[in-house]
């Protein structure tokens, strides 16, 4: 079989693939002034494919000036290509009851290859004590 006719196709394929693989280089101050209050987290993984691609590095929380719980989750794209994902925060009061609010809207987002990024949310009421983050593959 003559491989010559396939060469243009392979070249186009290689170009397409290289276009999708963009990773992120970063630089930051080595001696941090801020101290993140990391919290222990409990994870339930049902989509192993997504977890392998977009992993959770850590969770930290703080209280805002207005007395609301603010949560920040660090995500890392383990792959070398752009990943699309959706996420949603859910909030619970001291009795463990879910607080239904606009904050439960699903938000579509992207993360570049090997990028680390933070997603955060503020509790809708001061009564919210706990949270849950749902990550859904796009």
């Amino acid at each position: 079989m003559n491989p010559l006719p396939l060469l243009p196709l392979l070249a186009v394929g290689a170009l397409l693939l290289s276009g999708c693989k963009t990773t992120v280089n970063t630089v930051e101050n080595a001696q941090k002034q801020g101290q993140r209050q990391m919290i222990p987290d409990a994870r339930v993984i049902t989509d192993g494919n997504l977890a392998r691609k977009v992993s959770i590095v850590g969770v930290n929380q703080t209280m805002t000036h207005g007395g609301m719980l603010q949560v920040q989750v660090e995500l890392l794209n383990q792959t070398r290509s752009l990943q699309n994902f959706n996420y949603r925060f859910e909030w619970f009061d001291a009795a463990g009851m879910q607080v239904n609010s606009l904050s439960t809207a699903v938000i579509g987002s992207t993360i570049e290859g090997k990028e680390s990024r933070f997603i955060s949310a503020v509790a809708p009421t001061p009564a919210c004590k706990d949270f849950r983050l749902k990550l859904i593959e796009n």
Binding site: T64, M68, L102, S103, A105, A121, P124
Partner: peptide
């Protein structure tokens, strides 16, 4: 949610929710 229609030429309900959600969070946090 993620099953809603996404229109290019108009503001969808999820856009309003996302905008309101984001800005309310920032307002309360401030």
């Amino acid at each position: 949610d993620q099953h809603n229609i996404v229109s290019l030429g108009q503001i969808n309900i999820q856009d309003y929710i996302q905008a309101a959600n984001d800005m309310t969070g920032k307002l309360l946090a401030s």
